[in-house]
Amino acid sequence: MSEGFFDILLTTLLRTVKDVAPIVLLLAFFQVVVLRRRLPQPRRMIVGFGFVLVGLALFLIGLEEALFPIGETMAAQLTAPEMLGTLGEKGEIDWRNYLLVYAFGAAIGFATTVAEPALIAVAMKAEEVSGGAIKSWGLRIAVALGVAIGVSLGCFRIVTGTPLPWYIIAAYVVVIVQTFRASKTIIPLAYDSGGVTTSTVTVPVVAALGLGLAASIPGRSPLIDGFGLIAFASVFPIMTVLAYSFVSSQIARRRSPAIARGGNSN
């Protein structure tokens, strides 16, 4: 942080405001011209909006100054051939040499997802709307596990160089099968959590991992093979959330058979 903390804060705040400006204009237009209704507690809402902007700016600064550089360097170091000990036998890639990369992918995918503000928002809303039947923390852990599995499998795909669509389409098939076995109340939430995970915190670190990995493996192009990790990270959470709901309803059923069956049937 050499160029002065407040300069960085101001620049990031301005950037955040610029990103949000179209939405604010749109909201103001509809509120004033179309709906013409007074907002309840307008001061509180404006203060809240200010909190969101300043909070997000601070959050981004902290990530960019502290976490992203380390995460990206780490991804580069872990995927470097010297680290993996794969120099020498050129042209031959053994996927077992990259176990450390899969482990790092899973761990960082899990950790960044738990900190994802958009997911926190959706999980808060889900707990509120379901009257506590869906636990915010449980949902977030389930999503994070999904991202962990997705990212490490995505790294495996980059190492082996197998086509991306096979994995994604196979994952879709599993999701469709699970959908027909799942309770109706969890399905929209599960689908949503797939889209939410790939946001502010997860994308930069995971993308750096993918690009670093594709660049260090002979025969892989970062341009073609570096993409796709994000897609993995958005399909697998759907599976784990559906599985989480299945497991938690099974546990509830075992504890009190009558209530659980009644609650599940509608």
Binding site: L56, F59, I61, A66, P117
Partner: peptide, 12 residues
């Protein structure tokens, strides 16, 4: 910064 920012964001 990250901790403070996340707290403000959630309150917002």
């Amino acid at each position: 910064c990250v901790v403070g920012g996340l707290s403000l964001f959630m309150q917002g």
